[in-house]
């Protein structure tokens, strides 16, 4: 006889041990489903496109090309970067895009899965995990491009590059934190998805993606208080120079991210039944 499942109106927080156990259990049991969903989404993504997988390369190339041309024409001036500018922009854009994907992915995925959520009770974590897998897959494709570019510009690599993936995971987790936090509200109110693109656009300006980290003025302060800054800077430094300029910021942000993600996850679990109830009654 399988274990008894009880549905009551009481808050799950009243049964913390049960809550943590189900979270763990659902995470484990959603691996296979997440894999399926990821395979489904990735194969569907490129199948109906004439250029297929080339679409993974085209946007970062276009961005890097645009910024490099603009910089060469002195449309804007940026300080000295430790690696050649095209490689710098391309690498940072790939990292930033990965963060944006991780943040908007869960919101979009949950919205898209609405009909499914309203009918089948499957571990909701699977949708988020599938999206995470897709984010990593997309980064992997961009990585091919970055490696090519680094070889072309003969950018020296440091041995610390093997630690870069760890830092990259922290960046993705920070994005996921934002995404999971907004996903349930995003299903209820369309304002979330609409404002998310705008916020991400503004956030990009405050992140050292197309310029090196500024040190002076209000702008410099804003950039250094931006939680994405230490993560992106650290990943780049681990990969190239091996000298970390923002290691304290990195660990503070990473710690907060892990803690925040746990709390957000609990919130997500609590919120989903109410969200499902409101969208399809």
């Amino acid at each position: 006889m399988p274990p008894e499942i009880v549905y009551t109106p009481d808050s799950l927080l009243r049964r913390p041990r049960f809550l943590l156990w189900t979270m763990w259990h659902d995470l484990l049991s959603s691996r296979e489903l997440a894999w399926r969903l990821m395979v489904r989404d990735i194969s569907a993504q490129y199948r109906q496109a004439l250029l297929g997988i080339a679409w993974a390369f085209i946007p970062p190339i276009a961005t890097a090309l645009g910024f490099t041309l603009a910089k060469d024409a002195n449309v804007f001036t940026v300080g000295e970067t430790d690696i050649p500018y095209p490689a710098y922009v391309m690498f940072n854009t790939a990292l930033w895009q990965t963060f944006v994907d991780a943040a908007t992915g869960p919101v979009q995925a949950i919205l898209l899965a609405k009909p499914m959520l309203a009918r089948v009770n499957f571990p909701r974590e699977a949708i988020v995990l599938a999206k995470l897998g897709e984010v990593i897959f997309n980064f992997g494709i961009k990585l091919v491009l970055i490696v090519g570019l680094f070889l072309y510009f003969r950018v020296p690599l440091s041995w610390t590059v093997i630690l870069a993936p760890v830092a990259l995971i922290h960046l993705i987790l920070l994005g996921t934190l934002v995404g999971v936090l907004l996903a349930p509200i995003g299903v209820l109110y369309q304002d979330v998805l609409k404002s998310l693109n705008m916020i991400m656009g503004f956030w990009l300006f405050l992140t050292p993606v197309i310029y090196p980290v500024p040190t002076e003025g209000l702008f410099g302060a804003l950039v250094s208080w931006n939680p994405v800054t230490p993560l992106i800077v650290t990943i780049r430094e681990l990969a190239t120079t091996g000298v970390l300029s923002r290691s304290v910021g990195f660990w503070v942000v990473s710690g907060c991210t892990l803690l925040g993600l746990m709390v957000t996850w609990i919130g997500f679990r609590i919120a989903m039944p109410y969200v499902v109830e409101r969208v399809t009654s």
């Binding site: 009880v6 109106p9 969903l37 569907a44 009918r119 009770n121 039944p273 109410y274 499902v276 109830e277």
Partner: peptide
């Protein structure tokens, strides 16, 4: 099926439950 929470009362389920509500859920 545990999709939404009851406002009062309790539901106990013993066994695997499959909804035939969701024909083709997730079909792409």
């Amino acid at each position: 099926s545990g999709l939404i929470k009851p406002d009062t009362g309790k539901v106990r389920i013993r066994g695997r439950l499959a909804p035939l509500i969701a024909l083709g859920a997730g079909f792409n």
